[in-house]
Design a protein around this nucleic acid. Structure first.
Lengths: 109, 109
DNA sequence: TTCGGTACTTACTTTTTAGTAAAAATTGTT
DNA sequence: AACAATTTTTACTAAAAAGTAAGTACCGAA
Protein backbone atom coordinates (compact mmCIF):
# COMPACT_ATOMS: atom_id res chain seq x y z
CA UNK A 1 0.00 0.00 0.00
CA UNK A 2 1.26 3.47 -0.85
CA UNK A 3 2.43 5.72 1.96
CA UNK A 4 3.07 9.42 2.34
CA UNK A 5 5.66 10.90 4.61
CA UNK A 6 6.13 14.37 6.10
CA UNK A 7 9.03 14.68 8.51
CA UNK A 8 8.69 11.62 10.68
CA UNK A 9 4.95 11.27 10.29
CA UNK A 10 3.65 8.65 7.90
CA UNK A 11 0.18 8.72 6.36
CA UNK A 12 -1.84 6.30 4.33
CA UNK A 13 -3.39 8.94 2.12
CA UNK A 14 -2.25 12.23 0.66
CA UNK A 15 -5.28 14.04 2.01
CA UNK A 16 -4.45 12.90 5.50
CA UNK A 17 -0.93 14.22 5.17
CA UNK A 18 -2.04 17.52 3.72
CA UNK A 19 -4.73 17.87 6.32
CA UNK A 20 -2.16 17.40 9.04
CA UNK A 21 0.21 19.93 7.51
CA UNK A 22 -2.33 22.75 7.29
CA UNK A 23 -4.16 21.95 10.48
CA UNK A 24 -3.73 24.83 12.88
CA UNK A 25 -5.77 27.86 13.68
CA UNK A 26 -3.68 30.32 11.69
CA UNK A 27 -1.62 28.23 9.28
CA UNK A 28 -3.72 28.81 6.21
CA UNK A 29 -3.81 32.52 6.87
CA UNK A 30 -0.04 32.59 7.19
CA UNK A 31 0.34 30.68 3.94
CA UNK A 32 -2.18 32.96 2.29
CA UNK A 33 -0.24 36.09 3.23
CA UNK A 34 3.08 34.57 2.19
CA UNK A 35 1.56 33.53 -1.12
CA UNK A 36 0.83 37.15 -1.94
CA UNK A 37 3.96 38.84 -0.78
CA UNK A 38 7.17 37.04 -1.74
CA UNK A 39 8.39 37.31 1.82
CA UNK A 40 7.24 38.86 5.04
CA UNK A 41 8.73 39.86 8.33
CA UNK A 42 7.55 38.46 11.62
CA UNK A 43 6.20 41.76 12.85
CA UNK A 44 4.39 42.34 9.61
CA UNK A 45 2.71 38.95 9.77
CA UNK A 46 1.67 39.69 13.30
CA UNK A 47 0.06 42.94 12.30
CA UNK A 48 -1.71 41.42 9.31
CA UNK A 49 -3.23 38.48 11.20
CA UNK A 50 -5.60 40.03 13.63
CA UNK A 51 -5.91 38.38 17.01
CA UNK A 52 -3.00 35.99 16.65
CA UNK A 53 -0.80 35.94 19.73
CA UNK A 54 2.97 36.06 19.47
CA UNK A 55 3.18 32.60 20.93
CA UNK A 56 0.84 31.02 18.42
CA UNK A 57 2.32 32.86 15.48
CA UNK A 58 5.85 31.76 16.21
CA UNK A 59 4.68 28.24 16.99
CA UNK A 60 2.88 27.92 13.67
CA UNK A 61 5.82 29.45 11.82
CA UNK A 62 8.11 26.87 13.39
CA UNK A 63 5.84 24.01 12.41
CA UNK A 64 5.47 25.23 8.86
CA UNK A 65 9.22 25.55 8.68
CA UNK A 66 9.76 22.04 10.02
CA UNK A 67 7.28 20.68 7.51
CA UNK A 68 9.21 22.41 4.74
CA UNK A 69 6.50 24.80 3.61
CA UNK A 70 8.25 28.00 4.57
CA UNK A 71 11.78 29.14 5.20
CA UNK A 72 13.14 31.56 7.72
CA UNK A 73 15.85 34.00 6.83
CA UNK A 74 17.60 35.82 9.62
CA UNK A 75 19.51 38.98 8.79
CA UNK A 76 22.09 39.60 11.49
CA UNK A 77 21.25 43.21 12.04
CA UNK A 78 20.30 45.23 15.05
CA UNK A 79 17.43 45.29 15.66
CA UNK A 80 17.12 41.83 14.12
CA UNK A 81 15.27 41.24 10.88
CA UNK A 82 13.65 37.92 10.10
CA UNK A 83 11.89 37.21 6.85
CA UNK A 84 9.61 34.30 6.12
CA UNK A 85 8.92 33.02 2.63
CA UNK A 86 7.31 30.05 0.94
CA UNK A 87 9.63 27.28 -0.17
CA UNK A 88 9.17 25.50 -3.48
CA UNK A 89 6.97 22.92 -1.76
CA UNK A 90 5.13 25.76 -0.09
CA UNK A 91 4.50 27.47 -3.38
CA UNK A 92 2.97 24.30 -4.69
CA UNK A 93 0.24 24.58 -2.12
CA UNK A 94 -0.92 27.93 -3.47
CA UNK A 95 -3.67 26.39 -5.62
CA UNK A 96 -5.20 25.05 -2.43
CA UNK A 97 -5.20 28.51 -0.89
CA UNK A 98 -6.69 30.06 -3.99
CA UNK A 99 -9.49 27.49 -4.14
CA UNK A 100 -10.13 27.84 -0.45
CA UNK A 101 -10.33 31.59 -0.64
CA UNK A 102 -12.77 31.35 -3.51
CA UNK A 103 -14.92 28.96 -1.55
CA UNK A 104 -14.86 31.19 1.51
CA UNK A 105 -16.07 34.08 -0.57
CA UNK A 106 -19.38 32.30 -1.00
CA UNK A 107 -20.08 33.35 2.58
CA UNK A 108 -19.59 37.08 2.16
CA UNK A 109 -22.17 39.21 3.88
CA UNK B 1 -14.81 46.16 5.92
CA UNK B 2 -16.12 42.98 4.32
CA UNK B 3 -17.19 40.12 6.56
CA UNK B 4 -17.82 36.43 6.05
CA UNK B 5 -20.35 34.42 7.99
CA UNK B 6 -20.78 30.70 8.61
CA UNK B 7 -23.58 29.81 10.98
CA UNK B 8 -23.17 32.27 13.81
CA UNK B 9 -19.43 32.72 13.38
CA UNK B 10 -18.20 35.85 11.65
CA UNK B 11 -14.79 36.17 10.01
CA UNK B 12 -12.81 39.01 8.54
CA UNK B 13 -11.38 37.00 5.71
CA UNK B 14 -12.58 34.15 3.54
CA UNK B 15 -9.51 32.08 4.30
CA UNK B 16 -10.22 32.35 8.01
CA UNK B 17 -13.74 31.12 7.50
CA UNK B 18 -12.70 28.27 5.24
CA UNK B 19 -9.92 27.32 7.59
CA UNK B 20 -12.38 27.11 10.43
CA UNK B 21 -14.81 24.99 8.43
CA UNK B 22 -12.30 22.33 7.46
CA UNK B 23 -10.35 22.34 10.68
CA UNK B 24 -10.71 18.96 12.33
CA UNK B 25 -8.62 15.86 12.27
CA UNK B 26 -10.81 13.93 9.83
CA UNK B 27 -12.94 16.52 8.06
CA UNK B 28 -10.97 16.72 4.86
CA UNK B 29 -10.85 12.96 4.62
CA UNK B 30 -14.61 12.78 5.05
CA UNK B 31 -15.12 15.42 2.38
CA UNK B 32 -12.68 13.62 0.13
CA UNK B 33 -14.58 10.35 0.37
CA UNK B 34 -17.93 12.04 -0.14
CA UNK B 35 -16.56 13.87 -3.17
CA UNK B 36 -15.87 10.56 -4.86
CA UNK B 37 -18.95 8.62 -4.02
CA UNK B 38 -22.19 10.57 -4.39
CA UNK B 39 -23.27 9.42 -0.96
CA UNK B 40 -21.97 7.16 1.73
CA UNK B 41 -23.34 5.38 4.74
CA UNK B 42 -22.02 5.96 8.23
CA UNK B 43 -20.62 2.46 8.58
CA UNK B 44 -18.93 2.71 5.25
CA UNK B 45 -17.25 5.99 6.14
CA UNK B 46 -16.07 4.42 9.35
CA UNK B 47 -14.51 1.51 7.52
CA UNK B 48 -12.86 3.74 4.94
CA UNK B 49 -11.27 6.14 7.42
CA UNK B 50 -8.80 4.08 9.31
CA UNK B 51 -8.37 4.85 12.99
CA UNK B 52 -11.27 7.25 13.32
CA UNK B 53 -13.37 6.53 16.39
CA UNK B 54 -17.15 6.46 16.25
CA UNK B 55 -17.29 9.47 18.50
CA UNK B 56 -15.03 11.61 16.36
CA UNK B 57 -16.63 10.52 13.12
CA UNK B 58 -20.13 11.38 14.22
CA UNK B 59 -18.92 14.63 15.77
CA UNK B 60 -17.27 15.74 12.57
CA UNK B 61 -20.26 14.68 10.51
CA UNK B 62 -22.51 16.76 12.75
CA UNK B 63 -20.27 19.81 12.40
CA UNK B 64 -20.02 19.49 8.65
CA UNK B 65 -23.79 19.18 8.55
CA UNK B 66 -24.27 22.27 10.70
CA UNK B 67 -21.88 24.21 8.50
CA UNK B 68 -23.92 23.18 5.48
CA UNK B 69 -21.27 21.15 3.71
CA UNK B 70 -22.99 17.80 3.95
CA UNK B 71 -26.49 16.49 4.42
CA UNK B 72 -27.76 13.53 6.33
CA UNK B 73 -30.52 11.34 4.99
CA UNK B 74 -32.16 8.90 7.36
CA UNK B 75 -34.09 6.02 5.88
CA UNK B 76 -36.52 4.72 8.48
CA UNK B 77 -35.73 1.08 8.04
CA UNK B 78 -34.64 -1.64 10.38
CA UNK B 79 -31.75 -1.81 10.78
CA UNK B 80 -31.47 1.93 10.23
CA UNK B 81 -29.78 3.33 7.16
CA UNK B 82 -28.17 6.78 7.12
CA UNK B 83 -26.57 8.29 4.08
CA UNK B 84 -24.31 11.30 3.97
CA UNK B 85 -23.74 13.39 0.87
CA UNK B 86 -22.19 16.70 -0.09
CA UNK B 87 -24.55 19.64 -0.42
CA UNK B 88 -24.23 22.17 -3.21
CA UNK B 89 -21.95 24.28 -1.02
CA UNK B 90 -20.06 21.14 -0.14
CA UNK B 91 -19.56 20.26 -3.78
CA UNK B 92 -18.08 23.68 -4.34
CA UNK B 93 -15.23 22.80 -2.02
CA UNK B 94 -14.15 19.88 -4.20
CA UNK B 95 -11.47 21.92 -6.02
CA UNK B 96 -9.82 22.44 -2.66
CA UNK B 97 -9.78 18.72 -2.00
CA UNK B 98 -8.42 17.98 -5.44
CA UNK B 99 -5.61 20.51 -5.07
CA UNK B 100 -4.84 19.28 -1.60
CA UNK B 101 -4.65 15.69 -2.70
CA UNK B 102 -2.33 16.63 -5.52
CA UNK B 103 -0.10 18.49 -3.12
CA UNK B 104 -0.06 15.58 -0.69
CA UNK B 105 1.08 13.27 -3.44
CA UNK B 106 4.37 15.14 -3.55
CA UNK B 107 5.22 13.26 -0.37
CA UNK B 108 4.69 9.74 -1.65
CA UNK B 109 7.35 7.29 -0.58
C1' DT C 1 -36.88 -14.02 24.43
C1' DT C 2 -32.58 -13.50 22.97
C1' DC C 3 -29.78 -12.01 18.84
C1' DG C 4 -28.20 -9.41 14.87
C1' DG C 5 -27.18 -5.32 12.47
C1' DT C 6 -26.76 -0.27 12.10
C1' DA C 7 -26.09 4.12 13.88
C1' DC C 8 -25.25 6.44 17.29
C1' DT C 9 -24.67 8.30 22.59
C1' DT C 10 -22.60 8.91 27.04
C1' DA C 11 -19.32 9.41 30.69
C1' DC C 12 -14.89 9.85 31.74
C1' DT C 13 -9.86 10.63 31.00
C1' DT C 14 -5.96 12.22 28.53
C1' DT C 15 -3.71 15.02 25.31
C1' DT C 16 -3.25 18.93 22.57
C1' DT C 17 -3.97 23.52 21.56
C1' DA C 18 -4.53 28.15 22.78
C1' DG C 19 -4.41 32.36 25.87
C1' DT C 20 -1.89 35.71 28.97
C1' DA C 21 1.59 38.30 30.33
C1' DA C 22 6.15 39.12 31.45
C1' DA C 23 11.05 38.61 30.22
C1' DA C 24 15.21 38.00 27.22
C1' DA C 25 18.62 39.09 23.61
C1' DT C 26 21.04 42.43 20.76
C1' DT C 27 23.70 46.79 20.08
C1' DG C 28 23.63 51.47 18.13
C1' DT C 29 21.81 55.89 19.74
C1' DT C 30 20.69 59.49 23.26
C1' DA D 1 23.55 54.02 31.74
C1' DA D 2 19.11 53.72 30.05
C1' DC D 3 16.40 53.19 25.80
C1' DA D 4 14.71 51.72 21.42
C1' DA D 5 13.24 48.27 18.09
C1' DT D 6 12.41 43.52 16.77
C1' DT D 7 11.98 38.68 17.34
C1' DT D 8 11.45 35.52 20.21
C1' DT D 9 11.10 32.63 24.82
C1' DT D 10 9.17 31.21 29.11
C1' DA D 11 6.01 29.93 32.73
C1' DC D 12 1.65 29.31 33.87
C1' DT D 13 -3.34 28.66 33.08
C1' DA D 14 -7.51 27.58 30.56
C1' DA D 15 -10.06 25.62 27.02
C1' DA D 16 -10.80 22.57 23.27
C1' DA D 17 -10.03 18.37 20.89
C1' DA D 18 -9.42 13.63 20.92
C1' DG D 19 -9.25 8.84 22.94
C1' DT D 20 -11.54 4.85 25.36
C1' DA D 21 -14.88 1.89 26.29
C1' DA D 22 -19.31 0.74 27.45
C1' DG D 23 -24.20 1.51 26.66
C1' DT D 24 -28.68 2.62 23.93
C1' DA D 25 -32.36 2.14 20.45
C1' DC D 26 -34.84 -0.15 16.97
C1' DC D 27 -37.45 -4.31 15.33
C1' DG D 28 -37.69 -8.41 12.72
C1' DA D 29 -36.07 -13.13 12.63
C1' DA D 30 -34.66 -17.44 14.89
Amino acid sequence: MEKYKLGDKVFDCPVGLASNAINGKWKLQILNLLSQEECMRYGNLKRRIEDVSEKMLIQHLRELEQDGLIERKLYPEVPPRVEYALTEVGRQIIPVIVALKQWGQLFRI
